[in-house]
Every structure is written in C-alpha cells, then in structure tokens.
Simulated scan of single mutants.
Amino acid sequence: MKCPYCTHLENRVIDSRINKDKTIIRRRRECSSCEQRFTTYERIELMLPMLIKKDGRREAWDRGKIIAGLEKACEKLPVSMTDIDAFVDRIELRLQDVGGKEVPTSQIGEWIMEDLPSLDEVAYVRFASVYRQFKDVNEFMDELKNFLDKPSGKL
C-alpha cells in the first residue's frame, strides 16, 4: 500500500477493525518512511453486471455515484452515512440477484425510488425531483399525490 504522504511502499498495520455487518475491514497504517498514519478500507469486490445508460452506453457499477446522489438527497436531514451505506448495500444485493450481465440504469433508479421512502421521505421527494426530471409543477404534484396515496406514503 502506497503512503498518501510520501508514496513510500512499506508500511505496517497498527489496528484492524471489522464493521458491525462484517463486510468492511478498516485498517490503520503507519508509513515506515515518514511515520505518517493513514486509514484504508477493504471491501469484497462483487462481480456486478454492466449498466446500460439511457443513451445506450455501457458503464461499470460505481457505488460512489449512488452514494453521492443519496448524500445530496439527504443533505441536512437526519440520515447517517451508515444508513446510506446500508441502503446502497441493499441495492448491490439486488443487482447481484438479477444475475444478468447487463442492467438498465432505469431499473436501479426504480429500486431507489421504491426503497427511499423507508430511508427518509423528504429525501425521496428530493431524489424524485431530479430522477423523474419533471417538466413542470403539475408533474411534480402528481408524483407527490401518488406517493401520498400509497399506504406507506406519509409526509
């Protein structure tokens, strides 16, 4: 592991901890050269299908993009990074369960729209406003009405 401070390749692990779900290992390291400390995370690399964008391009799964979108939707809301990570973990599991080689990004967007109210209802409305690309206020109001008409919808 290359030191982020001096780029030296030798370091030692000072501490290792496993998260509560036992899916990520956090390692605290110290560089042998500059003695700076840094943290690394290990996660199982999943073989996930390629994503098909709306314009037909193929793209590899990027967990960071989903997290960034959810962070934006959850900004200034009482939603922790742990909750967002667990949410994305569930999306990744669904992707694995599909079993195909390719999945349209629209399918992932729909999964997020289905599950997001359980994370935070305001985040759902924020995400929907970007994901659905409403043309006007009436389309936005229709989405809200549909959400409120569902048994779980309660703003």
Score class of each variant (00 low, 15 high):
V79F: 08
W111N: 13
E35G: 02
E143L: 02
E114D: 15
L70M: 13
L46N: 13
L48S: 07
D62I: 04
T7V: 08
R28N: 04
D62F: 01
L70A: 05
L95T: 08
P78L: 11
R37V: 06
C74L: 10
N19H: 01
L46S: 07
L51R: 04
D55I: 05
Y41K: 01
F87L: 04
E42P: 08
A128E: 10
D15W: 03
Y124V: 04
K22T: 11
L148G: 07
I18K: 15
K54P: 15
V125F: 06
A73D: 02
G109T: 06
N19T: 09
S32I: 00
E59H: 09
E121P: 09
V79R: 05
S16F: 06
R27W: 00
G100N: 12
P49I: 09
S106M: 06
R58P: 05
R12V: 09
L70K: 04
K101Y: 03
D85A: 12
K76Q: 14
E71P: 01
E110P: 07
C3A: 04
I108Y: 13
D15T: 11
G69E: 08
K145V: 14
P4L: 03
C74M: 06
L51Q: 10
E114Q: 15
L148A: 10
R90Y: 10
I84A: 09
R29A: 02
K154H: 12
S152T: 13
F147W: 12
K154I: 07
A68P: 12
E30L: 10
E30F: 03
I66V: 15
G109P: 03
N146S: 14
A68Y: 10
F87W: 08
L48H: 04
E42V: 04
R90G: 13
F127V: 05
Y131E: 12
M141V: 12
M81H: 11
D89I: 02
Q107M: 08
L70E: 14
E92D: 11
M50W: 12
S118G: 15
I67G: 09
N138T: 09
F127C: 01
K65F: 11
E45H: 01
Y41D: 05
T105K: 14
R37S: 07
F127T: 00
E75F: 10
L93K: 12
E30T: 00
I67M: 13
D89C: 01
L51S: 11
V13P: 09
K20L: 14
S32V: 10
W111D: 11
Y124S: 04
D85M: 05
L148D: 01
Y41W: 05
R90L: 12
I84H: 10
K76M: 05
V13W: 00
V122Y: 13
K150T: 13
A60F: 02
G153W: 04
S152V: 05
L148Y: 00
D55K: 08
K2Q: 13
R29H: 01
V103G: 14
G69H: 02
L155A: 04
R29P: 06
I67K: 11
N11V: 00
K20T: 15
S129N: 06
A73R: 01
I67N: 07
R126V: 01
E75C: 03
K150S: 15
S16G: 05
R37Y: 01
N19Y: 05
T23L: 11
I84C: 05
V13F: 07
N146Y: 06
F140H: 08
A123S: 03
M113K: 08
L116C: 14
R126I: 00
L77R: 15
Y41E: 07
R37A: 00
V137N: 06
N138A: 12
